[in-house]
Amino acid sequence: MPAISRLFLKTGIVYLVLSLLLYLAMQMPGFGLGTLWRPVFYHMLMVGWITQVIFGVAIWMFPRVEAPATGSGPAAGTKGSMAGHYATYALLNIGLLLRWISEPWLDGAWRFPEGLARLPGVAPEFLTTAMNQVSVWILLLSGLMQLGAFLLFTRQIWPRIRGKRAIPTKNPRVNPPTSKVPPPSP
């Protein structure tokens, strides 16, 4: 299994555990986080876990790249461009993390602790106002990063969705076996 697949699978399992912990926190009687965290939970489970595991297994198990017809594209016999796979991983996971910060903020699910606004040099409500403005763009960026990750994965895996490689024939008349006996010297 290539390192990038192991990275996808391990990160996917971490997201599975985190999503279950978040669900427990949402359901805790008397201290429940409430339904505002529901989009985060669903995306942690569906994108963070399932989609990430699918990506990791697909990179590992799909047939290797055939020789490109045009001379461009990933090299034949490889699992595609590893840089492309790592870029997919980075885009997907940074996009997800940005989403965990910005979407619950916009939904009002979390706020800065009150003590933070009373720190010396920090104007009251400054952090909240700034976060209100910034989180809008962070959320948009997170959506674009995830879309970019899916586009990149599709681009990377597309040449590997193919049938079994043709097995070369072993016709002795076409390819005569090389003799192990050295030719006689003149």
């Binding site: 910005s102 979407e103 916009l106 989180s135 809008v136 763009w137 959320l139 995830q146 879309l147």
Partner: peptide
């Protein structure tokens, strides 16, 4: 992504 753009 379009829904997130609308949300933000």
């Amino acid at each position: 992504t379009l829904i997130l753009a609308e949300k933000s």
